[in-house]
Amino acid sequence: MRGRALAATLIFAAFAAVPPLAYWANDPYLIVIASRIVAFAIAALALDLILGYGGMVSFGHAAFVGIGAYSVAILGQAGITDLMLQLLAAIVAASAFALVTGAISLRTRGVYFIMITLAFAQMAYFFFVSLSAYGGDDGMTLSSRSTLFGSDMLRDDGIFFYVSLGLLGALFLIATRIVGSRFGRVLRGSRENALRMNAIGFSPFRYQLVAYVISGAMASVAGVVLANQTKFVSPAFMNWHVSGELIVMVVLGGVGNLIGAVFGAVVALVLQEFLGAFTDHWQLWFGLILVGVTLASRDGVGGLVRRLTGGKR
């Protein structure tokens, strides 16, 4: 556990150092990349909460990201630009969607769960594609970023980045609390053995559903950040590809230790930027790295790092 806390401190310190570094290197665009990484790190963190601790492999988490993004766009168009209100709306909407779809999805197990979450995400995707009032398939441009306490300070990329990082940090602490609590232990227990949990008087269904709702609400925060970062929303945010990439990030960073998900998001996105700078065929190399990492390590890059540095789990 101490190693994990150290890793978390290191990663958050590295994040916090990006803006000064970017100004020093005279390359403010680095902050833009870093904000994007933070957004995906939030979504990956949310997914790891149910995937790593509840054994629920959701192949539809992009839907929550999209709901968060559209909360910003729809409220923004109605004149409500306050970030807090938008966050609240995103969380309420995503929780409602998670409650309904989760109650149905959790009747299934394993691969069937993977596919039914995908089905619901695809429904959400096609719903927003047909929503012409908000641009349909074309998506819509936001005229400006959200406001915070009535000020438009988020226009500044640096401030926006630190606010996003703050959200990631807060959610990380909340998630850490959750998995360390009795609720988290029940959740893990129901992953290991649902029958036994039932026998000692816990209904795994209720715990799993609550976890699913929490995770969906957290993922919607990622959508709020992403919409503000690109100043644009589109159904493409909820494409099944995005759900797949989120799984890749979580698995890449090592399943079931929260900071690994954040680390996975960093690794995946930096790697994409890095390979993209070398070659137009970056997907080929990225794919080869994914295959290579999986074959070489049982626990993603995180596991590889631990093994190479001789650390323990």
Binding site: G110, V248, Q283, L284, G287, L290, V291, V293, T294, G300
Partner: peptide, 19 residues
């Protein structure tokens, strides 16, 4: 290996073959 590892590796393979 776990289903997740299989997803990760074959997702990578999809990218490799498509490219």
């Amino acid at each position: 290996r776990s289903h997740l590892d299989q997803v990760l590796a074959t997702f990578g393979l999809v990218m490799v073959v498509t490219e």
